[in-house]
Design a protein around this nucleic acid. Structure first.
Lengths: 126, 126
DNA sequence: AGTTTCTATAATCATATACTTATATAAGAA
DNA sequence: TTCTTATATAAGTATATGATTATAGAAACT
């Protein structure tokens, strides 16, 4: 049952759920995730590695960037994402994350170093 | 998202999954779970309390015993149990647990103190 | 080559988790 | 009431987890 319990373990962390729900919208690189979620680069990177180790995402290098895409083969992950998206208004933090993603689209030519203005400030007790 | 992540957290532990899958078969008391799963009474009790705190099970006192019943309102729990049961042969430990439950039926008049013979010995790397 | 940008990893720390042993509580039986 | 049975909880320990800071590696640009 190790695989099963490990998947649940990954889904039990708010930061990882936020990453997953953004990746459900689009393939994104580490720095885009970091900026849109307002979470440090090492934290994003580490969590993506965990997701990749369980084969829930795949990494593709695109020139300077490494882009991560959500995989849909795992039924628990797929079901969870579907159900959350159906009722996303229940999770204000996730709604804000998605909004940030839309607002920042295209403004990430200089992905991480410059353009520090539009970072996600987060929501308490979501 | 606290409720959501907490549910996943509870599902991420093998002992709790085993408890849940036995309760999916029938309402059971602490000592029956302890004996059928080969897990200590305090461990069962503590995990049942956690499940109860998130409203995933309900406790009913029946004379000397306290019987626990799985609730079905939580969609993640319900889906998880359904999917596991559909492919239960993938999880030998769970198959063994279910077998223990059937084999021990009715033999638990003296639930915990006596009748130590048929305890579940467990399976490695399930 | 040297610099910048993007990503990964290591070290550290604080907190959370899960189990064991021992003990307390609660209910029924003698 | 005293004893037994069933359950809950507390204390202690070992391990796991998640974040931060600092640093290393990898690719593109000057």
């Amino acid at each position: 049952m190790k695989k099963l319990t490990s998947v649940f373990q990954l889904l039990s962390d708010e930061t990882r759920l936020r990453i997953i729900l953004l990746l459900a919208q689009d393939e994104l690189c580490v720095c885009e995730l970091s900026k849109n979620l307002g979470v440090s680069q090492p934290t994003i990177s580490k969590n993506l590695t965990k997701l990749k180790d369980l084969d829930l995402v795949i990494a593709v290098r695109r020139e300077k960037f490494i882009s991560y895409r959500l995989k849909t083969e795992n039924y628990i992950l797929a079901y969870t994402v579907d159900e959350i998206l159906k009722n996303i208004e229940v999770y204000p933090q996730l709604v804000l994350d998605q909004k940030q993603l839309v607002d920042n689209r295209g403004s990430l030519i200089q992905c991480c170093s410059k353009n520090k203005e539009n970072v996600n400030k987060g929501i308490k007790n979501d």
